[in-house]
């Protein structure tokens, strides 16, 4: 061990893990809404990158982190509505569409970034206020990590509770799950299938865009083409691991957020592990976790199947 005191190190690692979990959690919660309504959004990665770029661009020009986050969210909604139009109204293949959006999102943001800034990498000079929760923040080790975070982090945690409540306790949530399971029965019962699906994918896009913007605006303060390195796909897998339950999705996001931050953490204390092996961990760990936990899960009955009135 190096000179970094163990206590401070643990706090730093825990804090980094919680921050690394935020984009995964946001994206996976959004995907939960979309998939529960029967839409498989494989374009998450492209939507996150777009959110990251839009957030970065707006924050750089307005010097406001909140404007950046809002821009990321807005960009995500636009993607969600486009996905919705093509997948819901035109009934195109969702796997092809998702991968198309992944290519397009990565290409478009890389293209815009290089066109606007050339080889430069401008950094953002914005920050979001940190809030320390009285008393709790004073608890050794876990206190500062858990209870001295950016406001957005707390809001994300609140979103877990809100999502869980909306999905399982409200009429909208019930209708959403009905639409994903049996769209014909739902339609016959008077549920507006198309409207619900559009709302679900708009929520999914918004959360993906916000997740990307959190990465560039709140966490790293810069943008690099391809900066999400597969986090969109990890979020999709977390959704499956979490079996579409926000609480379980939260646990999954924390787990893979920790794995992601481990790379930096171990380097700080000077443990001699090849960085490639640590960088590999989240992806390998995900496959292992899927084998152990997911297996033959019951997917939403109508996942990735377009709905067409009057045709079964």
């Amino acid at each position: 061990m190096s000179a970094v005191p163990l206590e401070g190190f643990t706090t730093a690692l825990l804090s980094a893990a919680l921050i690394a979990a935020v984009p995964l959690l946001l994206a996976a919660l959004g995907e939960t809404f979309a998939e529960q309504a029967g839409l498989l959004n494989l374009g998450l990665e492209g939507m996150m990158l777009t959110g990251a770029f839009a957030g970065f661009f707006v924050a750089l020009n307005t010097n406001s982190a909140y404007a950046g986050l809002a821009a990321g969210l807005g960009a995500g909604v636009l993607w969600g509505l486009l996905f919705g139009f093509l997948a819901i109204s035109l009934r195109v293949d969702q796997v092809i569409l998702g991968l198309a959006i992944t290519i397009l999102g990565a290409g478009l943001t890389g293209f815009l970034f290089r066109s606007l800034y050339g080889a430069r990498f401008p950094t953002l000079d914005v920050s979001l206020p940190k809030v320390a929760i009285p008393l709790l923040a004073e608890v050794p080790i876990v206190g500062p990590a858990l209870f001295r975070q950016q406001v957005v982090v707390y809001l994300t945690w609140a979103l877990v509770v809100v999502s869980s409540f909306v999905l399982s306790r409200t009429r909208f949530g019930l209708e959403l799950r009905a639409v994903g399971e049996h769209p014909f029965a739902a339609d016959a019962a008077g549920v507006k299938v198309f409207r619900i699906r559009y709302l679900a994918i708009a929520i999914g896009g918004a959360m993906a865009g916000l997740a990307g913007a959190f990465l560039s605006v709140a966490d790293l303060n810069f943008f690099v083409p391809g900066m999400t390195v597969g986090q969109g796909f990890i979020a999709i897998a977390i959704t499956m691991l979490g079996k579409w339950k926000p609480g379980r999705v939260f646990v999954g996001a924390l787990l893979f957020g920790s794995l992601r931050s481990l790379a930096t953490g171990l380097q700080v204390v000077g443990v001699a592990v090849q960085p490639e092996f640590i960088l590999m961990l989240p992806y390998l760990g995900l496959i292992v976790a899927l084998v152990l936990l997911a297996g033959r899960t019951a997917l939403p009955g109508a996942l990735a199947i377009p709905y067409e009135r009057g045709r079964r």
Partner: peptide, 14 residues
């Protein structure tokens, strides 16, 4: 920027 080709590929798929 070379990313322009990715943009074209993505657009073609859409």
């Amino acid at each position: 920027p070379v990313y322009f080709v990715d943009v074209l590929e993505g657009l073609m798929l859409v």
